[in-house]
Nucleic acid binder design. Structure first.
Lengths: 306, 306
DNA sequence: ACCGCGCTGAAAATACCTTTCAGACATGAG
DNA sequence: CTCATGTCTGAAAGGTATTTTCAGCGCGGT
């Protein structure tokens, strides 16, 4: 490849294959180029993405030139051949696509395409997670985890969307061998709260911090001497009065199609997961085998085929 | 290119060549792959930039396999051949370089501090959301949304952690005036599935794609002519046989303290939210007033003080 | 008009990618 | 234990895409 050279007019290779400054390079070198090469360079610079999809032959046709010219142009632009120019083109296109999509999360609108919906939703939730993590008070979390790890029994109150979060937490705690219950019926919740004692822990989950049906049982548990934890978006809300530890969830931007009650879920789940992992760490001796055990047990519920 | 087929085991091309969600795709498809293909996929996912510089032969050597295997892997990942995978790799590398956020999330360990736990968890979930959004097949989503918007009645099957997601979806659909039920009892689910007819929609949620208790009712609904939707992390799983539309959730990196079954939740919820918003958009005339109405109704359950 | 020079694309040569195929290996049945 | 069956795998054959070669052509100078 290196002996029989003829048109391999290798400039002393001063230019390492440029990454993104392609347009600039095209402009710089344009005067050096012959007419057909300019056509190629021009095309390539103006539509990297489109050209990345073409073979030499394709690009030659599109520019009304020949394969040879395309290769020559590639060389001039600093690449060993068209193959490499093409790769660089793909890279460039990707960069442009990424860069040009800051997609400052506008509200999700009624006439958004589904692609937009997916993108926006994912971005909003990511933002929500970042906010929650940043705002979470680790001291409070630490205290809550300690209480849970030492708890004799754990009751979790949540209603509506928050009830699902409560169930999620309970499912997890059960998996590591703790005694936990989720309550959505306010009456039963209160009835149970009356039974709570010193080492027991009660957790209330409410975004608004004003959900009476959830505050009530927490208050009762609090009055009976249990350790109480509130997971809420309003740490100054009424519920704060009855909570030993407060874990604040972040309030995501809401929109008409996605009310606050709905978007608080992500934040609550993150908090709940942190609680769980914290507890699992501190009870590792018993938690680890329990986790494996539940995994094993579940395996039998799967169809073994495949 | 498309006539002489033998090993051209073309799956119905459900996957448009993924752009950036390659790592996620590798994880999703890993179980499907043979050992040597896994080696290739692994290498490619962990060093896109490096691999983009290699030819088939080069990559085959580097992974200690053959060219054939490399091509096979490319196909499985959704590209027509290695050439295209290579282009995608270059694009991916460029994006990563730009994003500059290597953010190599290490596994959550037993002795991590709570601060670390919070940070890592949040990052993992964010990654999971991004992966899911990138890998979601909008065509399938579109079809699923259309079916839901026109449904006479909607049944959702989910067990364990997936049941919470099912409930979440049902709660939301109810809010915009649709008729939806979540089933966790397999017997009742099947009993109900028998009633399903043409315009009805059945949705099964299972991460593994092998949960018999969830597959059964979906199959029954399918056999009775209902439109069926599967939300699963294994689009090639057994459940695929009975699903008209498949929505793929991404498999997050799992660790001992956070098994796959647990971390799939985030991904599932995003998909469910997208479904919901899509349906809400398409039934806006009735959905909007219904949403406000439920908001109003709930306000009365809050303590008015504050 | 004629000459020389370098641009240009068709076609040959090569490199790269894809497909085929037969042997190696695993798996389950008898 | 042995065989039958099916899957995985890489070597090599078969195609494409890229690169190189080379003869023709247009253009400016004399």
């Amino acid at each position: 490849m290196s002996s029989g050279v003829k048109e391999t007019f290798s400039r002393p290779a001063p230019a390492p294959p440029a990454p993104a400054a392609l347009a600039a390079k095209v402009r710089t070198l344009a005067p050096t180029m012959t007419r057909s090469m300019q056509r190629v360079a021009e095309t390539v610079a103006s539509d990297p993405a489109g050209c990345a999809a073409l073979t030499v032959t394709g690009l030659a046709e599109r520019t009304g030139t020949s394969e040879a010219t395309v290769v020559r142009t590639s060389r001039l632009l600093g690449y060993p051949g068209y193959r490499d120019l093409r790769l660089a083109l793909a890279a460039l296109a990707a960069q442009q696509a990424t860069g040009s999509a800051p997609a400052v999360t506008a509200d999700i609108a009624v006439d958004d395409s589904l692609v937009d919906v997916v993108t926006k939703l994912a971005q909003e939730e990511q933002q929500c997670l970042a906010d929650t993590a940043a705002a979470l008070d680790v001291t409070q979390l630490e205290a809550a985890v300690a209480a849970l790890a030492a708890a004799r029994r754990i009751d979790v109150y949540g209603i509506g969307a928050s009830n699902l979060v409560a169930q999620d937490l309970v499912q997890k705690l059960l998996r590591i061998g703790l005694i936990a219950h989720a309550h959505s019926d306010p009456h039963l919740a209160v009835t149970n709260a009356v039974q709570m004692r010193g080492r027991d822990v009660a957790i209330a989950i409410t975004h608004s911090g004003r959900t009476t049906d959830v505050i009530e049982p927490l208050r009762v548990a609090f009055d009976h001497g249990a350790t109480t934890i509130a997971i809420t978006g309003r740490p100054d809300g009424e519920i704060a009065a009855y909570a030993d530890h407060i874990l604040t969830t972040s309030t995501a931007r809401e929109s008409e199609l996605r009310p606050a009650a709905m978007s608080s879920r992500t934040s609550q789940l993150l908090v709940v997961d942190c609680l769980f992992i914290g507890v699992a760490q501190r009870t590792y001796e018993t938690a680890a085998p329990a986790l494996s055990a539940s995994y094993e047990a579940l395996a039998h519920r799967h169809n073994p085929r495949h």
